[in-house]
Design a protein around this nucleic acid. Structure first.
Ligand SMILES: [Mn+2]
Ligand SMILES: [Mn+2]
Ligand SMILES: [Mn+2]
Ligand SMILES: [Mn+2]
Lengths: 219, 219
DNA sequence: AATAATATTTAAGCGCGCTTAAATTTAAAT
DNA sequence: ATTTAAATTTAAGCGCGCTTAAATATTATT
């Protein structure tokens, strides 16, 4: 089993479990852009080697070995993202794509040095926690999807999903980035489209987008 | 044909041609740690796709397509090496190994930014020229193997071969690095072992090592 | 020129990660 | 309960990059 694919599977499974209780083969297949059959195949191998356990229709579980392996690769991914953003200066919406390759091609020694240069940050530029060298995960503020906010409420962006470059580019251009404040002006009944105010401008956001932005309410 | 292996083949062939007129399948096999048969196989594919041409016992030639592809990958490799050394601070003898992986995992955009941050250097930390974005190769001072220097002569180190990490580590520990001066005290007749003076210390160097260090004579 | 040594190629085969298509299982709808 | 829909698994097969072993071509030695 090549490291690259093993690492990709484990990263996707781990990230899936960060967001929801259950991760299904088809979710993994979609994120890796491969067929369901390929995922089933690989899951058998990963199960045999004690990385995961899974039962059909009950989703995939990470075993200890798989979890610690996944944390390593997620750490590499997020440290690279942060380094590319802060030191190298690549655009915010481009770092995920780039890190997805670099994560497989760097020694622990290199990653540790990058982390040191960055001053041991707790979160990456999309608001996700960066696992420490010992596997510990920095604690995040509680947050929930912007989609659930109601008219009149104000919030601060804590985290965004980085599944999709087009989404990230849109968020970037709309200044919907980590730490920024926004206020919901209106929530449309029929389709839950939001009208929000950010940076003194008004913005109309579909539910498909507001589900990918995680905020903390400000009283 | 996967990018990674294609790039590795082309890089090795290109580097081989930097040093000698003829590059044979077995040389490539040795550098990539694979069998001759695998190289033959790949050469057929690379020939079919117009990257190289080769005739048995006459060595491998890079065609235009292969040469420009090779230059790109060598550029990536050497920019990474320089960045890892100067900005990240990895040890001199470790950067080649690390760059050998990173070279396959970075966009042109990233490489260009690294180059900019470094101030568009002409040479990597082992003294090899870094191809420019347009494919131009910085001109090197003429140099020849330290092995050819005679007793009493003084020289400056221009370039070292970076094929082998153990060699590099030894050179590093002996301060046999780029830009340093040395003087040949004695050249032993039988085995061409050199006794040299560097940094006020004397050092005994086998021919196997002195063949991998390239110097410019100082009058 | 004949022979030995060496380099290269060909042949056969293997494991991996993937594909599509068909079969099967589970869940949802009626 | 039965039918329908959806998710998953199994089956068969493919291309890639590699391996070892055998065959062949080139070069060096005598
Ligand atoms: Mn990846
Ligand atoms: Mn991210
Ligand atoms: Mn490489
Ligand atoms: Mn080098």
């Amino acid at each position: 089993m090549s490291n690259i694919s093993k690492e990709d599977y484990l990263r996707v499974i781990y990230k899936g479990l960060e967001d929801s209780e259950i991760v299904s083969p088809s979710m993994v297949a979609e994120h890796l852009n491969i067929s369901n059959a390929a995922v089933t195949d690989m899951l058998r191998k990963l199960t045999k080697e004690k990385y995961v356990s899974y039962e059909p229709y009950r989703g995939i579980q990470l075993l200890q070995k798989g979890r610690s392996e996944a944390i390593k690769i997620v750490r590499r991914h997020r440290i690279w993202e942060t380094f590319l953003f802060k030191v190298v200066g690549l655009p915010w919406y481009q770092i995920d794509e780039e890190a997805e390759n670099l994560e497989h091609s760097s020694s622990d020694e290199l990653i540790d040095r990058l982390e040191m240069i960055l001053g041991y940050p707790d979160f990456d530029p999309h608001g996700h926690p960066i696992p420490k060298r010992n596997g510990k995960i920095p604690k995040q503020n509680k947050s929930f999807p912007l989609a659930k906010l109601n008219a009149g409420e104000t919030a601060c962006i804590q985290k965004v999903n980085d599944y999709n470059k087009e989404l990230l580019k849109y968020l970037y251009e709309s200044k919907l980035m980590i730490g920024n404040r926004l206020k919901v002006i209106e929530k449309r009944k029929f389709d839950d489209t939001l009208v929000i105010q950010i940076d003194k401008k008004q913005l109309i956001i579909s539910e498909k987008i507001s589900k990918n932005i995680f905020v903390e309410k400000i009283k």
